[in-house]
Structure formats: structure tokens, C-alpha cells
Design a protein around this nucleic acid. Structure first.
Lengths: 409, 409
DNA sequence: GTGTAGGCATTTGGCCGACAA
DNA sequence: TTGTCGGCCAAATGCCTACAC
């Protein structure tokens, strides 16, 4: 670590050319990583916990920030929607073009809930951007070696261990020495907080099955896992075994922080964005993928393709991806039944959830009845999947649809 | 409960005279209390947990709200002070005259940390007030029957129970039947969330002492108490035994909520107050007495007495009350060494912490070096306590000083 | 292929007085 | 007066197979 400090000092003494400044920042990051001030989270594990549909924007790229979507996230967290007490910010547009300055992945110390912090700088136009080095932050990468299991009563009871699905154990865990009687090994895995857990992995019983025994109950107790919560294992790019958790939705109750009233939070979101927009100064947001109804930071490319690339109209058919219970993807089909403002008073002309839709399947009452155009797939991209419009049966050649890229068995 | 609903409907049908409106509100409150939507917290227990120096303003009364103080509370919660990214709100004065519309006491479901929610309405002048019924909310009342103990390693270990200080057991617990061998009874106490706990109270050992055994470990585990945390018992006005907890300061780490960035929270506080001030519309705040450096909602009377009643000057001696470890009060002495703006750029002329002070005792480095005039006692109120200026020895006739009113043994 | 239950060894929890600070 | 310890028994944890579904 000392050597890095040395390097920083050396770089700092050099003349402040652009190259040297970048060099300095790079070294600073290296220093921070080593000193553990802000230990970088394992990105792939973060994405695995976030689910197959989540991706974060690239540092330096251009995005549209949607205050309405951000406000919706606050509403979910506080369980209170914006009220009429919230002032209008006439100078804050419904979509704010920003350059992404910084993206960091985090996880709540208590609940392990994942979230991201981003720093966004409003820009006047595409030409207004400044090259930002991304210090090697990889583009969104979902792990290819992955499995996720919803915990049963037996898995979480103090009476026993964890029953590992066979295919998961065979795909992810190091191979057992089956000449042993019984075959057993010690698994050492790390979580999002870089905490190390040790599990005894054994293959026994009649019929034979894979189990995690010693060490498992400590994990369950420490993470306060209950039946219905999920646990997931991945192998990252370095082939390291890691473990993550996902709480059942019922438990998602992010409690009211008792720091700020819900109204003040809504005001804070809008006022911070308005101030940043007026001054072209960066502002910081949190994005909670699993709590938030929809992403509210949309890459410019994606936005353009959806808004200018396709002409949506009432009656048009579309598909939209959702996450399955086993953390796979599944497409649901629907029809656009209207195009109108979600909030005509506050945000006239906004593209945020301006499409009213109806879903083909009856069990979709939990799904949004309003979506934004960049969330859906329109006929141009769908014409090759005519069989999908039924939507009820699982497609046979699922590989063809690209939803076996990861996480689906 | 149905009958209350009936009454509400009836009241609602009546003509909307002022009396009927109040009647309606009163019934609504009754209904909410009964239905448990927002179960009222035991006020005395709340005050016991808050500590001897905390008091909440009366509903309907006039107060000054200090945005700076509110911002300080946010800074403590988020561990980030307001940065230069925070816009100025030139129309928001450093002190905002408000009428108190609503005060509710709360406790965090997880940590039991107490906090209050208040609704404040900015008013132009004292004449601007509207009579608000307080629905019988009592003025601040600290329980007279009270004790507080910091938990030892033995108290929190799984190996044993809780050792009750003799005087506490004798003062608060129902008298034991000392003819029993050994004397024992069952204590049923409730906490801030109205949860009932049952403890076996026994008097045994050599030498004899009071202990809580069966049921205690469940309480410790459930509240996640550690050695160093405190537990307190009170008898409320109905003479009911209740139990509360206070976390050690080290554990006060209210984690960053991951909902809003610290900057947005600071902006939210100021923007909400500014908007409310401009529109004379009510706004809602949270007050965390134990996390917050100083109260930022000051009764008009108290403010007046301090600001207009006394002429403070550099060199003046003063006293100020602090909480002791055992939840008593203790006066520390100091000298005013300067009068100046805490933040000359943002809040010029503000009365918030505009007094720079030095403390008599050397071990006071943890204490604020800036205070507001309403926090201190000036010579007029101190001339009768000349012996106190040493400040080091415990005054003998402490009753005379009024600091045995409660909680000090 | 995997969830749950019964059997049983081992560990932890928890009530007691002794002793010391 | 009260914090911690060793002793001792009871309750729970946790590893195993058997038996469903």
C-alpha cells in the first residue's frame, strides 16, 4: 500500500497536464481500493442480486434522467406518493439529458439489499460532453454461472442444513471426490460485503443429494433469512464462488427512515434536480433496482431508438420482459390501448409511462397498466416470434429467444 | 369500533359549522386510536427514552423553526454536512415563526429509537394563529418513577439474567412476598410498541439480590441489546410498569438510508421549509432528540426570554444542562468568548449557535463550542448558585438545584 | 430430485450460589 | 451492593437416514 502512496505523491509533484491529472486520479482510486476506504463491491454478484433485467449506465455516457421515475422510487420507499404540498418546478423538464459521472454499486449492511449511487451532470446537448475515464469499470455483466433458489422451511429451520439443487451443485461447486465415503468438501464463499462464509458440502442420503451442513445455519441466522427468501450462488469472472441473498417481496418494507418526511424527500428529489439543471452542476441519486418500479436513468441510445425509431399507436401489439420467480426472463404480451400523460398537470407531454396498455394474460393484474416506450418491444423486433403471442405456454426452443443466456435452466 | 364509525358519519352529515368540524376531527382521532391505525405511543415512556432534557412543543403553540438546526440533524443522520452544492434559499429566514399543528411520538420498529413528527405552519405574526384543539395531548411529562441501567456483560450474556439495582426494584416493582422461599413474582411490562414482555422477578443469592431471569434473554435477543446499551423501567401515570431501551452512542449509526443522497436531503429540508414559508402552508418534520445536537423547534416564549430578556456579552458566565450517564441532569459552567455568525454566507445574522463559548472543565472537548442563547442560563438565574461555578464537585444539597426532580439517585 | 420428520449426540441456554470488588 | 464464575440440568441445535410426493 505504501508504494501506491509513493506513486500518488510522485504523480502529484509532476506538472498538472491532463494526462498527469488522470494518472493521479487512477492512482487515487487504486489507493482507495487497497486501503478499503470504499471497497469496490463484486460487480457480477451485484448484478446477480439485482436480477436479469437490470443494467447500469456506462460512466461517461449520456442518459435521460426522469424526475417522475425518481419520485416513484421515493414513493415506494416511503409508501407515500407525492402530494399536492409538493411545489412545481417549472424549469425542470420531464426528461433531463445528463452525462454519467460516476456509478458505484452498494449493498445495505443490514439487509444486503443492493442499490447503486450515480452522479449525473446535466448537459445542454450531446456536444457538451467531457471525456470521462471509467477506470476500467466493466459494462453491465451478468454472471453466466449462476443459480438461485427460494429457501424452503427445511432450508431455514434450525433442524437441518441446505438442500442444494443437483444441477446447481454440479455446475457451480468444485467437483467432489466421489471415492470418499461420503464425498465431502469445504466451500469458502464471499458475500457482497466481502465477508467470508465456510460451508461443509456433503453428498449423502438415500437417494443421494447435495447438502450444505456445518456453517449454513450461521449464515441463515446472520442474514436473518426466512423461508421464501432466496439465496444465490455465482462464479465470477475469476471463477470465484460467491453468495448473495434476495429478500422475499413481502419483506421489502424499507422502513420510513425517520430522517425526512416523505414530502420533503419528494421535494428534495425535484429541487436537487432543478438546481443541478439550472447550474449544469452534478447531482447524486440512488437507484434501488429491486424496490423501484422502473429504471429512471435511460441511456440516450435506448431512448432514441424507442421514441424516434418506432411509431407507436393505439392498438399496436408489444412484448415486455419480466423476471421469473427463478430469476430468469419471460416475455409477456399486450396491446397499447392509449397514449396520454400520466400527470397532465405537473408533467404535460412527458414520455414517462405515457402508454396505457392491456395484458393478454388474465393473471397480470399486478403489472403496470402504464409503461414507457423504451420498456417495450414493438412489432419490428417481434415479427420473428409469432408463436409467442399466446404467451401462456413455455416456448420449446427457448434458446432461440435468448432467454437462456443466463439463469434459466 | 363500529359505533365510532357511525358517529363519524353522523357528524359528517351535520352542517359544517366550526364546532361540528372539530367534533368530527375528535371522532376521527378516536377512531384511529381504536382501530390501531396509528396506535398512540405511551408519552411518558417516550420521554423517559428521550432523556431528561427533551421536551416537545404544545399543539397550537407558537415556535421558531430553525432550518440550520434541522440541517444539522440531517448531517448527523447522513454523516455528511451540507455542501456547496446546496442552493441558497434567499426567501427562507434563519428563523421561521410557526404554529404547531400536530405532534406525534414514534419509535423505530427495529431499533426502538424514539423520534417525533411535527407539522408546522408558518405564520406572519402572533395574531395569525388559529385555535387548535390538542385532543388532550398532555404537556411534556417526564415520569417521576423511573430508573435506567447500563447493561453489563453479564446482563446481556446468554449465561444468566438481569441484575436489578436494589433501589430500582424496591421503588418500581410490585413488592415481593418475602415469606416465600425464595420470594418471586411475574412481571408483565409493555414497551413502546405496546409489545408485552413477561419477566420472572426473583430475590435470591448470597448476598440476596433482585434478578430478572426467565423471559429476560428473549427481550435482550429481540431488541438486540449489547453490553453498554441501557434499559429503563418506568411507572406511568396509570402506575403501569413499562420498559424502554436506549442504544449506546456508538451504535447510533443511523445508516445512510439509500433512498436519498445527503445533498438531496439537505435540499429537501430547505426547499420544503422555503415552500411552506412562501405559501403559509404546513410542512412536516422529524425530530430525533437523541441523534440531534440541539432542538431546532423552540417555543416562542423561551426564545423571547433568551433573546430579548437578557443581554449577553463577551466574558459573561453561564451554565448549561447536560444529561448524565445515568439519565440525570448536570449543569456545566462556561464563559462566552465571542458572538458571531455560525455561517456568515448562508445565514447572516442568525441567532442559531451564534455564541462562542469555553467550558470551565478540561474534559469538555466533546461539548459544542457554539451554543444558542436559549440553551443557556445566564447570571440572572444563576446568582443564587455561586458555589456551582467550580463545577467539578457534585453539589451537596442537590435537591436545592432541582436536579433530583427525577431520575437521579 | 427434493422436502419433511424421527432418532440421537452434542452444544448452548439458563438457573443457582460462591466469591470478590 | 452487584459483576462474574463454575456447577449442573434442560432445551436447542444440528447431523444422519427414512420416507414421502
Amino acid at each position: 500500500m505504501g508504494s501506491v502512496e509513493e506513486k500518488i505523491k510522485t504523480a502529484g509533484l509532476a506538472n498538472g497536464t491532463q494526462t498527469n491529472l488522470l494518472e493521479e486520479m487512477k492512482l487515487l482510486k487504486e489507493f482507495q481500493d487497497q486501503s478499503g476506504i470504499r471497497k469496490a463491491i463484486n460487480s457480477e454478484l451485484w448484478y446477480a442480486c439485482a436480477g436479469p433485467l437490470v443494467s447500469l449506465p456506462q460512466v461517461g455516457s449520456l442518459v435521460y434522467y426522469f424526475p417522475q421515475g425518481h419520485s416513484e422510487q421515493v414513493a415506494v420507499s416511503t409508501k407515500r406518493s407525492a402530494t399536492s404540498q409538493i411545489p412545481n418546478y417549472p424549469n425542470l423538464p420531464s426528461q433531463l439529458l445528463c452525462q454519467v459521472h460516476n456509478v458505484t454499486q452498494h449493498a445495505d449492511k443490514d439487509t444486503d439489499e443492493i442499490y447503486a449511487q450515480m452522479s449525473l451532470q446535466p448537459v445542454n446537448s450531446e456536444k457538451d460532453v467531457f471525456p470521462i475515464p471509467d477506470f476500467g469499470l466493466k459494462p453491465s455483466k451478468h454472471p453466466s454461472e449462476f443459480f438461485c433458489k427460494t429457501l424452503t422451511a427445511s432450508d431455514t429451520s434450525t433442524h437441518g442444513g441446505f438442500s442444494v439443487p443437483r444441477r446447481a451443485a454440479e455446475k457451480l461447486f468444485p467437483p467432489l471426490d466421489y471415492t470418499m465415503q461420503p464425498p465431502t468438501q469445504e466451500l469458502v464463499v464471499r458475500d457482497l460485503h466481502d465477508h467470508t462464509w465456510t460451508f461443509r458440502h456433503i453428498y449423502r442420503g438415500q437417494p443421494k443429494r447435495h447438502l450444505l451442513t456445518t456453517g449454513w445455519s450461521l449464515f441463515v441466522g446472520s442474514k436473518r433469512l426466512k423461508a421464501g427468501d432466496s439465496v444465490l450462488f455465482i462464479r465470477d469472472e475469476k471463477s470465484q464462488l460467491m453468495v448473495g441473498v434476495r429478500r422475499a417481496n413481502r419483506q421489502q418494507t424499507t422502513l420510513p427512515s425517520s430522517v425526512l418526511s416523505a414530502d420533503s424527500m419528494h421535494i428534495g428529489v425535484l429541487a436537487a434536480a432543478a438546481h443541478a439543471a439550472a447550474n449544469r452542476s452534478p447531482f447524486t441519486i440512488f437507484y434501488n433496482p429491486r424496490a423501484c418500479p422502473s429504471d429512471f436513468v435511460i441511456p440516450l441510445i435506448k431512448f432514441r431508438k424507442a421514441v424516434f425509431g418506432t411509431q407507436v399507436s393505439v392498438g399496436m401489439r408489444f412484448g415486455m420482459m419480466f423476471e421469473t420467480e427463478e430469476s430468469g426472463k419471460r416475455r409477456y404480451m399486450g396491446t397499447i390501448v392509449g397514449i396520454s400523460d400520466l400527470d397532465p398537470l405537473r408533467w404535460p407531454g412527458s414520455k414517462w409511462r405515457n402508454l396505457q396498455v392491456e395484458w393478454d394474460e388474465p393473471g397480470c393484474s399486478d403489472k403496470q397498466i402504464r409503461v414507457s416506450s423504451w420498456e417495450i418491444e414493438t412489432p419490428e423486433s417481434l415479427f420473428i416470434f409469432p408463436s409467442l403471442t399466446s404467451g401462456l405456454k413455455r416456448p420449446l426452443q427457448s434458446g432461440f429467444l435468448g432467454d437462456t443466456e443466463w439463469g434459466v435452466w
